[in-house]
Nucleic acid binder design. Structure first.
Lengths: 341, 341
DNA sequence: CTGAAAGCGCTTACAG
DNA sequence: CTGAAAGCGCTTACAG
């Protein structure tokens, strides 16, 4: 494998000069640049990144960490962020990690080894940031999860107002005439700054504000966001509360499996059961029936995150925490309950 | 950030000795090991991977390259491979790349920088391997794509027999009584070793063996594997051939959107239109109706790939190319055509 | 504009 | 069992 030395000896220049052309430094003669570039082509030379990073001081590029490998919603944000970043001429490195990994530890490793100028986190757990992010010397922004309560100067966040969106979701069902409403998805913890907890709290508060019940493991069934888990949870809910006429699913994936579970019980959607999802991923528009959903604005979130990091990477600016509007996307999965039709 | 020198001076040992305990070499006294390990904890020292890789000669770990970021089927294989590899105590590094990137170039960069012992490729394009894989000095295995025709000594492959599975798919529809069959998905190229091309060829051959037509852009509509593209393709197909009673979709994603498109045209599934997908991903079991599919055995593919690479990483063995059985998973999306009911 | 030299943080023979 | 030294492939002041 060709090294910088091979290029140097082949062209007769010193490795210092070769290094300068590799890194597009200005003080190199045209002739040197041309000859060295030719040699690089010829020998198929690629600088060893380890050696480069070992010595280089200036951080470069933006590191994106996506927490949730198969997560369609985060994937859709990622695709937009990638496009935006490339348009702005920034190098980008991505890591997809599973929900069980710690994104901030991943980031710390990244800082040590690849020295990015800044981070974008898609998804994330509040606790991970609380424990470690202070130690990371470059700015970051987290998307889909409000971290304003953490008060970390270098960490912005852009998220949907999950609490309000969830209240609106329940309200949509109530407005359609439903009084027997179930909730499925997520897991009950005490960390109320977590976005799923806000979603849950919103559902609870709106139900209770309307004198409706919200009881964990009765009409609220926690579950992970997979089809399988959602299906089981839906069955538990419908076993517990056979009079249920509407379900708010904390994610679209769960919403899809709720529809399936209902169908397997001979219920028609939306006539016998209304279902409302969350996120607004593409499958909503292709399921039968189409799944109504509280849609998070992925494109907007992506744009805010990119603009923010590109500025804060170059200028000292306080972190900002903003919320982007959600929209109710009407599908075909909500109708008034049979009784009042 | 603490370096190996800090540990050395803190403990009074030389950096050589510190390096030995970091790498679990045998010839270190118990006392040295203990004291150095303590210091490592205390100073929160993490070896700089760039420096390590720069010098280290012995390759380590298995690199997995997944080509297709949001691909549910490849994701499901990946999850199993990850588990298998961890159980075997192997370090694993993953890269998710998009279909437009070249997986072999990614691998070459990886070799240069992280020196893995071997590669597992999930998905892939034959052409990329043809051009470059010879230059990679460690063994590899590609999953879902048969590369036996390439005759690269260091490259195994495990795949579904796409050709036969596709013939069986069409045959299933014919057996159900269909004569007006459409095909959707993939793209027609000339590279017949590509797995999608085999799938396509299988469909074509089986149709023609039964005196049925297969005509690109008439009853075969090529399209990328997204809901949106599948939906449009389905509409084109049904516009072209209104008498279609069954569709073979080259992926489940496309199958789902075919069902949606048909429903939007007022067709009932399976009464008016039978749909058969390919891959057997989890959504098949949660769609309404459940999507019948030619299922690839993800768990089996994963196990074969891991066993293969773990052996060939340690012993000189010829590459092997094997095919794992597919299974027809019956859902609720296939019925006889109305006419003969 | 260019070269010579130091050094990034490690690993690895080589001595002892 | 341990240390001293060379060197991995680069970048970066420093001279000139």
């Amino acid at each position: 494998m060709a090294t910088i030395k091979d290029i140097a000896s082949k062209t007769g220049y010193s490795i210092g000069t070769v290094s300068r052309v590799i890194n597009n430094k200005s003080d190199v003669s045209e002739e040197a640049r041309t000859r060295i570039e030719e040699a690089i082509k010829e020998l198929d030379f690629h600088p060893n990144r380890n050696a480069k990073m070992l010595k280089q001081v200036a951080p470069s590029g933006i590191a994106v960490i996506v927490r949730g490998i198969g997560n369609r919603f985060l994937n859709s944000i990622f695709e937009k962020i990638q496009t935006d970043l490339i348009e702005n001429g920034e190098n980008i490195s991505v890591r997809f990690i599973s929900e069980t990994e710690n994104e901030v530890e991943t980031a710390m490793r990244s800082v040590r080894h690849t020295r990015p100028k800044g981070f974008i986190f898609l998804g994330g757990s509040l606790d991970d940031f609380t424990d470690y992010f202070q130690e990371i010397p470059v700015p970051g922004v987290v998307v889909t999860c409000d971290v304003s309560t953490l008060n970390i100067d270098s960490l912005s966040s852009y998220s949907t107002d999950d609490y309000t969106a969830a209240r609106a979701a329940i309200n949509t069902l109530i407005t359609a005439g439903h009084r027997n409403i179930g909730v499925i998805g997520g897991y009950p913890t005490t960390n109320l700054s977590d976005n799923l907890q806000r979603r849950l709290k919103g559902a609870k508060d709106e139900l209770e504000a309307n004198d409706l019940v919200f009881e964990t493991n009765f009409n609220y069934i926690p579950c992970p966001f997979s089809y399988e888990a959602g299906y089981e949870a839906a069955n538990r809910l419908l076993d517990n509360c056979p009079e249920t006429t509407a379900v708010f699913a904390l994610s679209d994936t769960v919403g899809i499996s709720v529809m399936r579970a209902a169908a397997d019980r001979g219920m028609k959607i939306p006539e016998d059961l209304s279902v409302l999802g969350f996120d607004g991923i593409d499958i909503c528009n292709y399921s039968i029936p189409r799944l109504s959903s509280m849609k998070q604005d992925a494109a907007h979130l992506a744009k805010m995150a990119v603009d923010d990091i590109l500025i804060r990477v170059n200028y000292q600016r306080p972190a900002v925490h903003e919320t982007v509007p959600y929209t109710f996307v009407e599908g075909e999965s909500i109708a008034p309950p049979r009784a009042i039709k």
